[in-house]
Design a protein around this nucleic acid. Structure first.
Lengths: 155, 155
DNA sequence: TTTTTAGTTCTGCAAATACAGAACTAAGTA
DNA sequence: TACTTAGTTCTGTATTTGCAGAACTAAAAA
């Protein structure tokens, strides 16, 4: 039987980080799983370990994990001769994740551009502000590699 | 009677931008209002104009607007001798908004730091990645003014 | 003083969400 | 062959949300 023991402090961290993740709109159970995978001493947990340490049902566990798998926040490995999967947070590729987030913001800038195109010329300042936002978002995206480089060199 | 006429194209833009905003977890009606205030020819709309052009109830309109006011995405002005308020998107301060978003991300980095502190030393790579994320988020926050400056100079 | 305007607030309901529990499945084990 | 393991899938239900509709309020207008 699986037995992951969390200290009181760890349990609190799971809840706090879980609540933080919830703000992004993800379902509570997935948020808890994500948090657990960062907080637990072991970085690779089985289905059962996740289920029992969060005290949630199998269906909730299954749903939560699969959601995280499809949005690419979690991955799993297997071990030779074992059928069960070991789930872990996909944090190694946090840089790509961040780039993707920036790209999502730039997706909005496409919409903003469309909007500014169809606006009447009379609302000059407003239109200008829109265009500035678009410009900055596009700049930010192209600038990200440089920002990463600068950070690396400063470490 | 208020009469804001939206073209078909504008209506579609309101929906598309509205859906985009919904991804952030905000309630649909607020997202439509936000989108409308960017798309409509007039940049300042009254309660009634918002209500009728989105075809939503007064209570939904009230709730949506007040939410946007409290999260500082919308503001209103009044005109001498008029009681009604004219609502408009608060886009002039998009820079501060962006800084605030970065700060929210850094709020997470506080949690991540706590987590990395309580982790066992044995999961070395994992811990290191966590610390790197924290480090980058903090760097990004301090770097934002520089990034803005670079963008301005490039325009 | 009644009426209009510009909203707010209070039910109540319909739809969506999130999860538990139980039945099920597919692969490996005894 | 039956049994265990590691999940998945299918109800059902409790909770949350999102909004309509109606009643209400406070200021101004008639």
């Amino acid at each position: 039987m699986a037995e992951i023991k969390l200290t009181q402090g760890q349990k609190e961290l799971v809840e706090r980080l879980g609540v933080f993740y919830e703000k992004s709109g993800m379902q509570p159970a997935s948020c808890r799983v994500m948090a657990l995978l960062l907080v637990a001493d072991q970085t690779e947990l089985t289905f059962e370990e996740i289920q029992q340490s969060l005290s949630i049902s199998k269906s909730a566990t299954s749903g939560a994990i699969n959601l995280l798998l499809t949005v690419n926040r979690v991955e799993y490995i297997t071990r030779p001769g074992e059928r069960k999967r070991y789930f872990r947070a996909k944090i190694m590729n946090w840089k790509e994740d961040m780039l993707k987030k920036i790209e999502e913001m730039t997706a909005m800038s496409v919409l903003l551009k469309e909007i500014s195109k169809q606006r009447p010329k009379s609302t000059k300042e407003f239109n200008h502000t829109l265009i500035e936002m678009v410009s900055f978002l596009e700049f930010l995206q192209t600038e990200m590699p440089t920002i990463f480089k600068k950070w690396e060199s400063k470490k």
